[in-house]
Amino acid sequence: MEYALCLVLIAIGLYGVVVKKNVVKIVISLAIIEYGINVLLVLIGYRSGGCAPILEQGMTAATLAVTGVDPLPQALVLTAIMINLGMLFLMVAICIRLYERYGTFDITEMRRLKG
C-alpha cells in the first residue's frame, strides 16, 4: 500500500507538470515527483524493525548485517537529493530570466522563443 501511495505522489507531480500553465508550478511539480521517487527507493530498502546502518557502541558487524536497513538505496538517494537541488537552482534561474523577458509566468504567453 505504501508503494501505491508513493506512485500516487509521483502521478500528482506528473499531472502538475503537464496541466499547469505557471512555470513556477511546473518547477514545484518536478520537485514533488523527486520526493515521490526518493521515498519509494528508501521504502524498498526498509526492513521492519530495522535500525539505521550505523555501527553503535558494543554492536558487532554481524548483528548489523541482520538488523540494519539496506544502505545502498540510502547512499544513492543522498546523491539524488543533492543533484535535484542543483537542478532546482538551474530551473529557478531560467524562471527568473523568463519573467524578466516576458513579464509573466504563463507559458502560453511566451510565444517568441528567440534570443
Binding site: A65, P71, Q74
Partner: peptide, 16 residues
Amino acid sequence: SYLARGAEQTGAKNVI
C-alpha cells in the same frame, strides 16, 4: 556485504 564488512574494510562506523 556492505553491512557485514563495511566497518572492517573502510574503518567508518557509519555504513552510508
